[in-house]
């Protein structure tokens, strides 16, 4: 619903009459399932200027940085154990995104 709102607001600002495609970034660990997003998107844009537009989903891989040794690694299911020093203090650099990146309008 929020994706559709952002798209419609921005398209209106530009005086566009129709949104053709919408690109979103979805992090691996955002908790958002692309299939579910696609399914809801179709319903959310119905009846508005983004109806029938194409949803392009860019998956963002999860990257964690170890707080102890600085090693970057792909965390395993949010258990952020550094593979190098086995430290527990890694923080997430990317992978939690849910953002509208760009839209194509006319």
């Amino acid at each position: 619903m929020s994706v559709a709102q952002i798209v419609v607001e921005r398209a209106r600002e530009e005086g566009a009459s129709k949104a053709l495609s919408v690109t979103v970034e979805v992090g691996e660990l955002s908790g958002v399932t692309p299939e579910a997003l696609e399914f809801c998107y179709e319903a959310a844009v119905m009846g508005g200027l983004a109806e029938g537009s194409r949803l392009v989903i860019k998956r963002v891989p999860a990257v964690a940085v170890c707080g102890e040794c600085g090693e970057t690694f792909a965390p395993n299911e949010r258990i952020f154990v550094c593979p190098k020093c086995e430290g527990f203090t890694a923080s997430l650099k990317s992978g939690e995104e849910l953002a509208v990146i760009e839209i194509e309008v006319e």
């Binding site: 929020s2 952002i6 995104e97 849910l98 509208v100 760009e102 839209i103 194509e104 309008v105």
Partner: peptide, 15 residues
Amino acid sequence: MAKTLEIRKNVLAKN
């Protein structure tokens, strides 16, 4: 004419 607008807005930004 079709054009591309950059947005880069977090979906939960309003919240």
